[in-house]
């Protein structure tokens, strides 16, 4: 199920997102698409062309969009609502919390341009906290798909399963990790690499999964054995896989394109300290705002490169007793 060689996806994530919406609309007559004036940016205009009556471009009003989506869902619709992750999380939190989660509605929230992938939109548009905000909302399911294969599977799951769900989604380039047709399970990490008697586990999400795989190759050359878990579901977290990793490999590195304050590192830490404390290193954004730049520049700025991952693994191993 894992590809033999890492390569960029041939398609942008947003194009796959739109294709999959159109596919799902055929099998799910209640599916609708909502946006807050970012359909052009998200590439969902083909959906609008095919299903104008099932598309609602609300204009620049994220709070209202979420409320409308809730109302639609309570009248039987399956709304997929998109805006940039910054606005979905920071602007519309109370609507997601009270109108959505507290009221047990059925809205699929899509926040795009996660973390450094906001690139030249810069600090105002660079969400390092969206998943953390969503994680604080009871009973939300929170997902970061790694590649297009997973994205398509996740969207099918969202359409089929009632509840408040948040998916952060890269709009443009991603690395293909999974063979087409691979099946996943919500709340279950994917073991994308497992060396015998691994010395450390990297728990990664989003663009950090490919980085971790590249880092593992470098580390293997130095005799360091690595397990990698793709923790694409941040909530519910796969506690079992985390505990197993702590007990079997004795050290954990968490790698995320998000702040470490409220992100995946924080979530994994909670499970580790309660069950099997081991040395941990956290790769992610350390209490900083975003800025403009290329993906490569921003990865260097915030310590999200392959080299950063290699170094974190070595630090974690050095701390093992």
């Amino acid at each position: 199920m894992i590809v033999k060689e890492l390569k960029p996806e041939a398609q942008e994530m947003r194009a796959a997102f739109c294709d999959r919406l159109i596919e799902l609309a055929e099998t799910h007559p209640e599916l609708m698409v909502l946006d807050a004036d970012l359909m052009g940016a998200m590439g969902t205009k083909p959906f609008l062309a095919k299903y104008p009556e099932r598309t609602v471009d609300c204009g620049i009003q994220e709070a209202n969009m979420v409320g409308v989506a809730v109302g639609l869902s309570l009248a039987g619709k399956i709304p997929f609502a998109h805006t940039f992750a910054t606005f979905m999380s920071r602007r519309a939190t109370d609507q997601i919390f009270i109108s959505g989660a507290y009221s047990k509605a059925n809205v699929k929230l899509i926040g795009s341009d996660p973390g450094i992938t906001a690139k030249t939109n810069g600090g105002t548009h660079m969400p390092f906290e969206d998943m953390g905000i969503m994680r604080g909302i009871p009973q939300m399911t929170i997902i970061e798909p790694t590649d297009i294969t997973m994205l398509k599977w996740v969207m099918g799951w969202m359409a089929d399963n009632y509840g408040m769900q948040y998916m952060r989604l890269v709009r443009r380039e991603s690395t293909k990790i999974y063979e087409d047709g691979t099946e996943f399970e919500i709340g279950k990490a994917v073991t994308v690499r497992d060396d015998a008697d691994a010395d450390v586990t990297i728990i990664a999400s989003g663009l950090c999964v490919a980085n971790s795989m590249k880092a593992a190759d470098i580390l293997a050359g130095e005799g360091i054995r690595v397990r990698i878990l793709d923790m694409f579901t941040w909530k519910p977290l796969d506690d079992e896989a985390v505990i197993k990793a702590a007990k079997e490999t004795g050290a954990i590195v968490v790698a995320e394109n998000h702040n470490i304050t409220t992100g995946l590192g924080a979530a994994v830490s909670e499970t580790v300290v309660s069950n099997a404390p081991v040395p941990m290193e956290l790769i992610g954004i350390h209490d900083r705002f975003g800025q403009v730049g290329s993906l490569e520049y921003l990865a260097e700025q915030y310590g999200l490169t392959v080299e950063d991952t290699v170094a974190a693994v070595k630090r974690a191993i050095a701390r093992k007793g």
Binding site: V56, G67, V70, G71, L72, L74, A75, D94, I98, S99
Partner: peptide
């Protein structure tokens, strides 16, 4: 039909229902 208490939110939900 709808939980409310955080003011300002109900109208959007009502509009969503009406639209459906």
């Amino acid at each position: 039909d709808m939980s409310a208490g955080s003011l300002g939110q109900g109208g959007s939900v009502a509009a969503g229902m009406a639209l459906a």
